[in-house]
Design a binder for these strands. Structure first.
Lengths: 351, 351
DNA sequence: TTGTAAGCGTTATCAC
DNA sequence: GTGATAACGCTTACAA
């Protein structure tokens, strides 16, 4: 079993893959006829069709996709592009289920998925342009893209594109979004129903759509519930654990500190929990918390996290379906919104 | 800003992408000359070359990749295939850094990455065959594949392939592996140096290479250290949190229970911690633990986990480099092994 | 140094 | 129903 020192070169003992010409010859028909037969086109006798099919399977014939692309113009593949690199996009807890959902639709449609290099780098962008202008894909799924510039403008005019979890300010690109405002409302009302009057919000201070919407949903719910919109209840931080921890440190010292917190992202929720614990607060007795995003850690942490559960797979599936609609020349709504649910666990103190 | 009800169809106002013929016409040369000029081939006067380049950039010319593929036989893309679906492979804490590393090498080489559908399903396999036999990729990176059947045999003879984190029993396919045995040795010796004599092992009982190697490393270290290889010190469980928790429940009751545990995977480490805590043991005072895989949670859990840090990015980079070697016709070692390091945090009780 | 001719493997068009 | 013939956009070989 110890073969570590061996060196291997690519085997070259295989014959070239068989072409349609081979199939036609074996079946005793012309090349176009073989093509018709294999593509289930009318105008071929069933006897011929059978003969061609048998020849094809005998020769393990697989169409050369480049040749087919060249003439049909279709590539049967789509690109997934994001702001991060190849696997960065997949490591994000939020985007992963979206990609799972989109992937299942795309794979079922028999399409291939090309991972475009990250936007933001020059080389990444030029490779993406090559993919788009070189007609290597039939459509683009842009996940969590922030850029608004010429890239997307070009996409819009040259290639079907669906935006996932973001909107653009200036260009009307169809998007599939989580209903962040709705989720914030669910969380805030849940805490209010448990008797909390001073419900704080720790949100992301970036300029992305979801951050705005989440805050708007929180504010709207407070107003609707007739609760105070006290500025001291609200903290905006960078969207990471450490920033949330640092940014909320001073929050717990005040006499009229919030008795409950709605955290606008999963990372922020973790940071808030750390910070509160460091101040000696017991969750949920001293502080109730509702997080966002129903990720692995929501169940794993102690106590388990009450959270707004984003339906990522559904978002991804819908986005892929809409992209196919666009590819097939159908029109799609500019904005498709998927509502999240509330998953009640222990940190909100409901039981 | 509320434009939700609008419906959008693909814009068709764009002209067809420009071809080499357009470039040649604008530059006032023949098509082959334009081709030579743009591909930096000798035998073109620098004046002509400049004129062609200018025409190309003016027309936003991008070569049609299908046409180029058809004639050169190269696709400039590789497939990543795994046992899981599109994003399942990326959600695994172990594989993600591997893909990050591989991705950076592949993208730098200007290659595209095609995500192959999961093996194991009929449709996935047939789509993969289509990709391979249809010559849609130049090589395959197979991550954590367990199958040994005809699929890989075919790969080996028809297409360059590198296996990551696995070996095959019957076929000599070049592989890049983590040195699991080395890591197990590091962990075991670390615990012995801290004074532990009864060092237990909770490992995965599956049939994969890493599981065997990890156990072998543990056993080897015990022997080398002159410590008991007591069968009661060893528990093999399925590789998930719950199985590890259940499977180690009875471990803590014995008078001569282990004072330290080496957990053979990240998931197993979490399960062991849960189980030990449920039995009232305090970590690391009552039980020292060394885990495997330096993932996010290793730092996040309390106390932070001492763990064998697998160099996933390096594994991925190496795998991609070897794949390119294979694609370029060079030979590669059948087995490339990357050594992990030990990251000492709190659970082992070193400080 | 440049242009002409041929061909990659497939599908589309149109006679027969 | 079937088979010539052309075409997709590009690269290579070879002739001018």
């Amino acid at each position: 079993m110890q073969r570590g020192h061996q060196r291997l070169t690519r085997q070259t003992g295989h014959r070239a893959p068989s072409t349609l010409r081979d199939v036609a010859r074996v079946a005793g028909v012309s090349i176009p006829t073989a093509s018709q037969a294999l593509n289930d086109r009318p105008g071929v006798s069933s006897a011929t069709r059978t003969r061609v099919r048998e020849a094809a399977s005998k020769l393990h014939y697989t169409p050369n996709s480049a040749a087919r692309q060249l003439i049909t113009g279709r590539t049967d593949s789509i690109a997934v592009v994001s702001g991060s690199n190849l696997s960065g996009i997949f490591s994000d807890q939020f985007y992963r289920p979206i990609l799972t959902g989109a992937g299942s639709v795309v794979e079922n449609a028999g399409y291939r998925v090309l991972i475009a290099p990250a936007l933001g780098t020059t080389s990444g962008e030029s490779q993406l342009m090559r993919m788009v202008r070189g007609r290597e894909v039939d459509g683009v799924l842009a996940v969590g893209i922030v850029a608004t510039g010429w890239i997307l403008e070009m996409f819009q005019t040259a290639m079907p594109i669906i935006l996932v979890d973001n909107r653009l300010r200036d260009i009307a690109v169809p998007a599939v979004l989580n209903d962040d405002a709705w989720g914030a409302g669910l969380a805030t009302r849940h805490l209010a129903e448990l008797g909390h009057r001073r419900i704080g919000f720790v949100g992301a201070m970036n300029d992305e759509w979801w951050a705005h919407q989440t805050r708007a949903g929180y504010m709207g719910a407070l107003a609707q519930l007739g609760l105070a919109q006290d500025g001291s209840l609200e903290v905006l931080v960078a969207n990471n654990i450490e920033a949330a921890r640092q940014g909320t440190r001073t929050l717990w010292g005040f006499a009229n500190r919030p008795s409950a917190i709605f955290a606008g992202s999963g990372k922020i929720a973790i940071g808030v929990i750390k910070s509160a614990r460091e101040h000696g607060l017991v969750i949920p007795q001293d502080l109730a918390i509702v997080g966002t995003g129903d990720h692995d850690f929501a169940m794993m942490i102690d106590p388990p996290l009450t959270t707004v559960s984003v339906h990522g797979e559904q978002i991804g599936r819908r986005a892929a379906e809409l992209l196919f609609d666009l590819i097939h020349g159908e029109s799609v709504p500019e904005s498709t919104v998927i509502r999240p649910d509330l998953v009640v666990r222990s940190t909100s103190g409901a039981f």
